[in-house]
Computed example of a mutant assay.
Amino acid sequence: MTAILVLEDGRTFRGEAYGAIGTTVGEAVFATGMTGYQETLTDPSYHRQVVVMTAPHVGNTGVNGEDDESRRMWVAGFVVRDPARRAANWRATGTLDDELVAQGVVGISGIDTRALTRHLRDRGSMRVGISSELTDPDELLARVTDSASMTGADLAPEVSTSEAYVVPAVGQKRFIIAALDLGIKTATPRYLAELGVETHVLPATATAADLLEHGPDGVFLSNGPGDPAVADYAVEAVRGVLDARRPLFGICFGNQILGRALGLGTYKLRFGHRGLNQPVLDRVSGTVRVTSHNHGFAVDAPLGRAVDTPYGRVEVSHVGLNDDVVEGLRCLDVPAFSVQFHPEAAAGPHDANPLFGRFVDLMAAEHDQPAGEHAVSPPPVVEHTTGEKS
């Protein structure tokens, strides 16, 4: 069955239906990862986005019941050039095409994803529609232009847990933390559990009082979708945590929320960072890490100096080497830090993995406990990665 893809500026691509039959609209973004498509599809940070895969061949390892990063697929649509004709991996429990159909994800295949990606790089991320029902591009374009923009979209509550739950520590329990679920991935509490951390996951709209109710040793701010400029509820909760001087660590959307809580601004990137190969400079240690990203917004902060905030001095700790985007913050007078990338990354890379250990060390310092080497080894391939990653 044929399908069409129409961008907000009118450019049209024709291909074949892939996944569910229907019509969908969202923000067109491209992801540069060569592996990990199952993790991408189930990452809540992709809510309301149509993901274009730059890797030409997708679906070769099928899908399985172990690698999902959340309870469902969140992408609004999926675009690939050359879908696998069959799954060929010993861990596969089904095909990607069948899973897309089962979860109602509308997609398109057989188009020039390189040309589409270059267009988005030149023109910036924009709204897009995919349809295997409509044949008139103008009709689909009308639906695209009537759809909501990502700017001003408050999406974290839509992907967050509705009720609090606990992920226990593995082995000896050292610390208890409260995690604000703005779109948390399952890998995050799993990594923390390996370090002896019990994680209490709370809904996105939890208040500071909720986060601090049981006296946690630290607070974690997760990744998530949408525009941080409208997530005032999360900003207020973080300010309450900072007032209490509780150790705090944020990633991705959590980095942006911490920035806002400190009084810094945020802005929308031209086409964002999404993939597994983003080089980031750690300005504190002088090292470069290859990192996993998924963000369309960033923190606005000066790179050359520390700034004064209501919570003391704050400096940019990490910067993206491709475009000098702020990729991390470090508070100098309160126990808080954040990064824009993903230390829990699946399918990798794992360069940033030791940041979880840094969070544990920060909590240990508050309790006058000895710090240690807490780098977590990547999970065994058999448990948490797809066969294509090994």
Rank of each mutant, 00 (worst) to 15 (best):
V241H: 01
S292A: 10
G250D: 01
E194Y: 07
K268N: 12
L248Q: 01
H273S: 13
T291S: 07
G171F: 06
L212I: 10
G272I: 12
L248M: 09
C252T: 08
V241Y: 00
G254Q: 00
N294L: 08
G272Q: 09
A178S: 15
G218V: 05
L212H: 13
T188K: 04
F253A: 03
V197L: 08
D282C: 06
A231T: 08
N294V: 09
F249Y: 10
V235H: 07
H295Y: 14
F297W: 10
T188S: 13
T199Y: 01
P247E: 06
R260M: 11
D227Y: 14
I176Y: 01
C252D: 08
D227S: 11
D227E: 13
G286W: 01
V280E: 05
N277G: 03
N223S: 13
V197T: 08
V288F: 04
T287K: 15
D210Q: 01
P168H: 09
E194G: 02
G218D: 12
Q278H: 12
Y267E: 15
T205M: 11
K185D: 13
S285Q: 07
H295E: 13
R260A: 09
D217M: 05
D181S: 03
V288Y: 02
F220W: 13
V230Y: 13
T291V: 14
L192G: 04
T266R: 05
H295Q: 13
P228W: 02
A169P: 02
C252L: 11
S285I: 04
A237Q: 04
T207V: 03
A234V: 12
R274Y: 14
S222K: 02
Q278K: 10
A178W: 06
A204C: 03
P216V: 14
A261T: 10
D282H: 03
G265D: 15
L221W: 11
A244K: 08
R246L: 14
C252F: 12
V288T: 12
G218T: 08
Y233C: 05
L192P: 00
T266D: 03
R246D: 05
V299R: 03
T205F: 03
Q172E: 15
T188G: 09
L180Q: 09
Q172V: 13
S222P: 02
L269F: 00
C252I: 12
G183A: 11
E236P: 02
V230W: 09
G240C: 05
P279N: 05
R289K: 15
N223V: 12
L192R: 00
R174I: 06
I177Y: 07
G296Y: 00
G196Q: 00
G171T: 05
V235N: 03
G250H: 07
A206K: 05
A298Q: 10
K173E: 15
E198P: 04
R239W: 03
N294I: 10
Y233E: 07
F271D: 11
A179F: 01
I177V: 15
F253H: 02
